[in-house]
Amino acid sequence: MHRSGGRHRSGKVARLEELLEPVLAAGDRALLFTQYTEFAAMLRPHLSARFDTEVLYLHGGTSKKRRDEMVERFQSGEGPSLFLLSLRAGGTGLALTAANHVIHLDRWWNPAVEDQATDRAFRIGQRRAVQVRRFVCPGTVEERIEALVTAKRSLSDMVVTGGEDWLTSLSTSELRAVFALGSDAVADPDEDTGGGDE
C-alpha cells in the first residue's frame, strides 16, 4: 500500500486496484472480505484515497446501530460502492444484495466461513450475476490453505453431493461391514472386567 520508488509494496493491493477500477467505472458494488483487521484498517484509507470515494468498514467492534446504518447506505444504491468487512463480523446475518462483486483478500482454513461471507451477496433479492474472487499469493501460507480448502471441498463433494446414492451402491457384505459393531464394541456382561469388588 505504501509506495517505494513508484511501485507498490503489496502485489495483492495492486491487483485489487486493477480489479476495482472497472467495477467502479461500471457503477457496480463490491464486498471486500479480510480476516485481518489491521490490514483492513490500512486498506480502507488507501482505497478511499486511490479511488476518491468513501469505503465502508464493518468489523467486530462496530455497533449494531452503526452496522445497520452502513448496510442501509450500501443497499440504497446512493452510498459508497465499496464495503470492506472483517470475515467474522461481516460473514453472517447481513443481506448485501447491492453487491455484484465479492473479493476475499485472504483465505480462511474453513471453507464454510468463506461461503457464508460470500452468501451475503446471494440473498433473496439478488437479481444480477455475482463474481467471486479469492486472492492467493503463491509460496505463502495462503497457498497451503488453498490446498487444504480444495481437499476439504473434494471430500465434502464425495460425501454430500452424492447424497445417499453411495449407500445404495454398496453390496450386502459392504453394508454389513458399515453397520456391524466391531468385536471390541460390545462387552459380554458375564465376563469379569476386573473393575468389581471381590
Score class of each variant (00 low, 15 high):
R3M: 15
G6D: 10
R9E: 10
A14E: 15
A14Q: 12
R15P: 00
L16R: 12
L16T: 13
L20F: 04
L20N: 11
L20S: 07
P22T: 04
V23E: 09
A25M: 04
A25N: 10
G27S: 01
A30C: 14
L31M: 15
F33V: 03
F33P: 03
T34F: 12
Q35D: 09
Q35L: 13
Q35N: 11
Y36S: 09
T37D: 08
A40S: 10
L43P: 02
R44N: 01
R44D: 05
R44W: 01
R44V: 15
R44L: 00
H46G: 06
S48C: 01
D52W: 02
D52L: 01
D52Y: 00
T53S: 15
E54M: 03
V55I: 08
V55E: 09
Y57H: 14
G60I: 12
S63N: 07
R67Q: 06
R67N: 05
D68L: 08
E69A: 04
E69D: 06
M70Y: 10
V71R: 03
V71Y: 04
R73P: 02
R73Y: 00
R73K: 14
R73F: 02
R73V: 01
R73E: 09
Q75E: 09
S76R: 05
E78V: 00
E78Q: 13
E78D: 11
E78P: 00
S81A: 15
L82I: 12
L84I: 01
L85W: 01
L85C: 05
L85H: 11
L85M: 14
S86G: 07
S86C: 10
L87G: 04
A89T: 10
T92Y: 06
L94W: 02
T97C: 06
A99H: 08
A99S: 03
N100Q: 13
V102R: 05
I103L: 13
D106G: 02
R107L: 15
W108N: 13
W108C: 09
P111R: 12
V113K: 05
E114M: 15
D115Y: 05
Q116I: 11
A117P: 11
D119P: 10
R120Y: 09
F122P: 02
I124Y: 06
R127C: 05
A129R: 11
Q131F: 08
V132W: 04
V132R: 07
V132E: 07
R133D: 07
R133P: 00
R134V: 10
G139D: 13
G139C: 06
I145M: 03
E146P: 05
T150H: 06
A151G: 01
A151I: 00
S154F: 05
S154W: 07
M158R: 14
M158Y: 03
M158A: 07
M158G: 02
M158H: 06
V160D: 10
G162V: 02
T168V: 04
T168Q: 09
L170D: 09
L170R: 07
S171Q: 07
T172M: 02
T172W: 00
T172A: 03
S173Y: 01
E174R: 12
R176H: 12
A177I: 00
A177D: 11
V178K: 03
A180C: 02
L181F: 13
G182F: 01
G182R: 15
S183A: 12
S183Y: 04
D184G: 12
D184A: 14
A187Q: 13
D188M: 11
D188T: 13
P189D: 09
P189E: 12
D190Y: 00
D192Q: 14
D192I: 14
T193N: 14
G194N: 13
G196D: 10
G196Y: 07
D197W: 14
D197S: 08
